[in-house]
């Protein structure tokens, strides 16, 4: 239960970051975002994406254009706003920091286990 909670917390932040990264490469449709996320092995159902996109849009990070579709109704294509770009920049640096923090912590942990193994010998 505790692990699950932490996992959810981790995934939530990363999902948002990933979605912003995917959109930053250019205008994209929601189901294509899903496809991208799947190929990045960040599994998520489509239903989860819509609230997230709506929230990001309302916070001014995203905007969308209606694009006519050959099959069915017009689609919403999302793109990053200037604000979104600057926030993505901030997230990039935060991610660097986090990655460093984790790598460093892992090294320390690895060293400690090695030390313990050495002691046992």
């Amino acid at each position: 239960m505790i692990a699950e909670n932490t996992q959810t917390q981790m995934r939530k932040g990363i999902l948002e970051y990933c979605v912003l990264l995917i959109i930053s490469r250019g205008e994209i449709y929601a189901s294509d975002i899903i496809a991208e996320l799947k190929s990045a092995r960040l599994l998520v159902v489509e239903g989860t994406l819509y609230p997230l996109l709506t929230r990001l849009k309302n916070n001014g990070l995203l905007s969308y254009n209606w694009v006519e579709s050959t099959s069915g109704p017009p689609r919403k294509y999302y793109l990053l706003t200037e604000k979104g770009k600057s926030i993505l920049g901030q997230l990039d640096s935060t991610w660097q920091e986090l990655a460093y923090a984790i790598n460093t912590s892992k090294k320390v942990a690895d060293n400690e286990t090695k030390d313990q193994i050495n002691l046992n010998k």
Binding site: T8, R11, K12, L15, V44, V45, E46, G47, T48, P51
Partner: peptide, 13 residues
Amino acid sequence: QMGSVKDFESSEE
């Protein structure tokens, strides 16, 4: 594909 409400819940705030 869309996910059930339970799936939404697990990834909600």
